[in-house]
Design a protein around this nucleic acid. Structure first.
Ligand SMILES: [Zn+2]
Ligand SMILES: [Zn+2]
Ligand SMILES: [Zn+2]
Ligand SMILES: [Zn+2]
Lengths: 144, 144
DNA sequence: TCGCTTGATGATACTGAGTCTCAACACGCG
DNA sequence: CGCGTGTTGAGACTCAGTATCATCAAGCGA
């Protein structure tokens, strides 16, 4: 349910052509609500009778991840999932019921990261933070 | 290079027998330095001429994860790795050079998590935080 | 001690995500 | 047109993790 433009912009910014398979993949991603697996996109493409190879979907996904327009999540179960998002550094709150995500700002975390670096002596390069819980919509929907 | 005892204790605490295959797996894990993949344990077992089936290694690992004595990490590359650790909730700083980890306390993070819950309206259930960087030893070793 | 029940094991087959290979294709440019 | 480079798709492949199932061992009561 997000917009295709940022995805296409990511391709262009990095000097990659916006081919029709890539456009199709971007559309499939934008049409998705919440996180998705690569297999979901393959299924979507099949459903829409799109002539896109499996490899091409993986390649487009990989490119978008490199460019920061899509991020790989690790669910508490250990499964991988993808979600489209802003290129700037941030983190995700993931609904464990419907899979929708919200982006959260990094600001409040920075002090903590610095403190860890100071205490452990590590030269920290990156970090990953994911929060899981039920989103407001799912909470008010009761069982859903 | 850690101790086997916590691993064995985890088995006992949950009412599982400490069989010789499980003891062997615990020893392999304790002998490991830094994070490891399941395949590493299989290779270690082979090297030591231990008659342990692959499935048994995976089962022991799964059990230890359930009991909180081993944790699954997600490296920045997307690979999964395992690391033995304390059962209490905490997070890891992972050396991107040698793979050794340090456990860090959750305390400094709690305020941030609460703030996110307040701002987003999510009912947060769990979270995962992993920090990556070079450990003090690797830093002073220069290139290593 | 015998026999039963339950948990544990290991060989093997299987699944499913992601990767690799390679031949064919599409564009941009001189 | 003709070349070079980037892109594509089919299919084979790898590899972690799971499932199946027959066998085995511990615990326990008769
Ligand atoms: Zn939800
Ligand atoms: Zn951050
Ligand atoms: Zn190190
Ligand atoms: Zn925590």
């Amino acid at each position: 349910m997000s917009n295709v433009m940022p995805l296409l912009a990511a391709f262009e910014r990095a000097g990659h052509r916006i081919t029709s398979p890539r456009l199709a993949v971007a559309n499939l991603i934008a049409a998705r609500d919440g996180h998705f697996a690569a297999a979901d996109l393959v299924a979507d493409a099949r459903r829409d009778r799109l002539a896109i190879g499996r490899a091409t979907i993986f390649r487009a996904l990989e490119l978008l991840i490199e460019l920061g327009a899509v991020e790989r999540l690790d669910l508490p179960t250990g499964e991988h999932a993808y979600v489209s998002c802003e290129p700037a550094h941030h983190h995700h709150v993931v609904c464990s019921s419907c899979g929708r995500t919200s982006e959260i700002d990094d600001a409040g975390l920075r002090a903590f990261v610095d403190e860890v670096a100071r205490r452990t002596g590590y030269a920290l390069e990156s970090h990953r933070l994911e929060l899981f819980g039920r989103c407001p919509a799912c909470r008010s929907n009761g069982a859903a």
